[in-house]
Design a protein around this nucleic acid. Structure first.
Lengths: 230, 230
DNA sequence: GTTGAACGTGATCGATTGAACAGTCTAAAT
DNA sequence: ATTTAGACTGTTCAATCGATCACGTTCAAC
């Protein structure tokens, strides 16, 4: 997973594949058992790997290595690579920021205010988990089993919530009259791209997209563009 | 490359790996030689593969198969997988739409008008080659040799051209006063996302992002958002 | 204490990977 | 007609892939 040029690297590095105890010690291995922690570490490593080299490009061995775990143990906790993938996305779907997207603000606020809260949550979500949009980009360009699964289990609810919010805010006269669906993809694009191509962003602009200042500026820009100024 | 669940597919499908002549014919093989065509077909298949399953996920055999070519021939034309990757991006960089990004419009036009032309070229580029932004998303999230190569050989010139154009148009008072760099990433996000997640777009909105109508609507939306209306 | 399920390991499998190689064939230049 | 550089082929290689397996170790329930 880390080898950029597999062939040459294969020849150079000698094995050192899986993880094993430093053998030779006389005493009993005294194995540590932390299933919760193992799952967490594996999920984090897997998210990074899937979003970085794609589903087929990610190897369970490399993920296990990253998570400081043997490949066997990884496959013990997640029966197959496919199940691991699904567990990764389920983990994201249950994140805090994800839920903020669904219930943004309270009833005393106008739709425009609630939309603003939702946009902030969206930008902060992508800043916190830039892998999410990279992963979506990898999966969402052609119909597939995995895409259907993502849409129904992760995407649909926040999508429809935001479209409704946009339509309401438009009815209030606060937002530009554009197809809510098109506008929501535009918002996602503006909110996600600075983080999903962060290295390019940093290289070309000399600014860190993950810094508090840049995040706020991104939020301001999006709001400034979709809300009608008086 | 096409196997979504490699393990099961491997077991099910019996070999049929490489491409070979239907042996048994008595006559001489009468091999066809079309190096230009071979290169083109391989480049197209490789672009699709790299953007779909990532660099490591794409196999030279699958690409060769897609291009109706033996793996040996692929590696004859492009010595290594890495060189093939570079050839793919060089091919994109020399596209017509790409050059339109650099020289948009003529001298008689205002900066705002030229920016509008550039935005149109950008959207049409992403519609024509949706793989481009998917590929960038895969590569541009962390510093790497390949990313540096892309930026210098593909990205930098159009990036700076658009930033300059934005700044000029802002000086004319035609464009919102936002950091040109930030604005250009926002434009790219809005222009690219509908196509790079086209299956999701189609599934959720029931509209085809590649249709003439949607493309025009996307262009209009972007222009409507960045230009100041009077 | 014993038991049994859950946790964790190393070895191994068939398949597939990128690459190298020794050839065969074609077409254009001489 | 001969040469030769380039186009193309099938075979083979070590490395790595996802997955399975038999086997230890731990811990809580009884």
């Amino acid at each position: 997973m880390r080898d950029v040029n597999p062939r040459k690297a294969r020849r150079a590095v000698s094995a050192e594949t899986d993880l094993k105890q430093p053998s030779g010690m006389a005493k009993t291995p005294r194995r540590v058992r932390r299933p919760k922690e193992v799952r967490e570490r594996v999920l984090a490593a897997a998210l990074h790997a899937f979003a970085t080299v794609g589903f087929e490009g990610a190897s369970t061995r490399a993920i296990a290595n990253d998570a400081q775990v043997t490949q066997s143990l990884l496959l013990y906790h997640f029966k197959t690579k496919d199940e691991l993938w699904r567990a990764v996305l389920q983990d994201i779907a249950s994140m805090e920021k994800m839920e903020q997207l669904l219930a943004s603000g309270d009833d005393t606020m106008t739709a425009a205010q609630r939309l603003m809260v939702a946009i902030r949550a969206l930008v902060e979500l992508f800043a916190k988990v830039p892998e999410l949009h990279r992963l979506m980009t990898l999966e969402a360009h052609q119909p597939s089993e995995r895409l259907n699964w993502i849409i129904e289990n992760v995407n649909r609810a926040p999508y429809e919530a935001m479209c409704d919010l946009i339509a309401e805010a438009q009815a209030e006269g606060a937002v530009r009259k554009i197809s809510p669906e098109r506008l929501r993809f535009a918002i996602v694009g503006m909110a996600a791209v600075p983080f999903s191509v962060s290295a390019e962003y940093q290289f070309l602009t000399k600014r860190n997209p993950f810094s508090k200042i840049e995040i706020e500026a991104t939020i301001d820009m999006i709001c400034g563009m979709i809300f009608i100024q008086q």
